[in-house]
């Protein structure tokens, strides 16, 4: 399976003493768009964190293969450099570090070279315009005092600037107004077109998917994937809800 960017094999993950993921299997191919849905508290975010390497999430069994290599013992920053990006559900505020300096230094980590300031500023400005972000945010401290919408846009801005191979979007659309969701959705589409990257989108709604073509939908319950299908599965869930869908099986 040369084409597989991400392979999650029988993954077990604990947070503290509690087992959250109980044998997850999931495969994402190159340039594919996957949607991960499921009731609250079933382990969707845990899967995102485990893929990107949050040390608080203990992998107790199984493996994560990215680009043909097991990454389960790799520190989070190494995974990022390999091309994994997580858009946080609640991006953290870091005082004293500007959004622009943070993106520039992340880029430097990834590419091993410092981008010329002029080129960087130009690209940043253009990308912010795509996301209808006020330029002033570039020089503000990372997420400090940003509204919920601006925080999410700042995540997509990082996505577009860093150009990873795999982007995991953890409820990037939650708490956003209609216009903001549309902007974010367009941003994700641009990422797909520009970078031919893969997406794993964790969401409860279809709004964020409007600009995208979904290849596969996964439904998670109680720490395992219970159902997989194509994009039509998303609509089915939205109209019926998880309970009814389960009852119908």
């Amino acid at each position: 399976m040369e084409n597989n960017l991400l392979e999650i094999k029988d993954l077990y993950v604990n947070v503290g003493e509690k087992e959250i993921l109980k044998g997850v299997n999931l495969t994402v191919g190159s340039n594919e768009t996957h949607v991960l849905m499921g009731p609250n508290g079933t382990g969707k975010s845990t899967l995102g964190y485990a893929i990107c390497g949050n040390p608080r999430y203990d992998i107790t069994g199984g493996d994560i293969i990215f680009d043909g290599e097991s990454i389960k013992d790799m520190p989070v920053n190494e995974r990022a450099k390999k091309g994994i990006f997580l858009s946080f559900q609640n991006p953290l505020e870091v005082p004293g570090v500007t959004l622009s300096a943070f993106i520039r230094s992340s880029l430097e980590q990834k590419t091993g070279q410092r981008m010329k300031l002029w080129d960087f500023k130009k690209k940043l400005k253009e990308t912010m315009a795509l996301l209808s972000m006020d330029e002033a945010y570039a020089d503000r401290d990372l997420n400090v005092g940003f509204s919920g919408g601006e925080k999410k846009k700042a995540e997509i801005l990082q996505l577009l600037m860093l150009e990873p191979k795999l982007a995991i979007l953890d409820e990037t659309d939650s708490g956003l107004d209609v216009d903001a969701v549309r902007t974010v959705s367009n941003g994700i589409k641009i990422f797909k077109e520009r970078c031919e990257g893969s997406l794993l989108i964790i969401t409860h709604s279809t709004k964020i998917l409007e600009a995208l073509t979904v290849d596969t939908t996964h439904i998670m319950e109680s720490g395992v994937i219970v159902k997989e299908g194509d994009s039509s599965l998303v609509d089915e869930i939205i109209s019926k809800g998880f309970e009814e869908l389960k009852a119908g099986e």
Binding site: N77, E93, V94
Partner: peptide, 24 residues
């Protein structure tokens, strides 16, 4: 969480901590 957030974009733990302290 803040250290993890910075690291998730490629920064080493040492750099992430130093950045947070400098920012402070």
């Amino acid at each position: 969480d803040a250290v993890f957030y910075l690291m998730s974009r490629g920064m080493s733990e040492e750099d992430a901590r130093a950045l947070i302290v400098s920012g402070f």
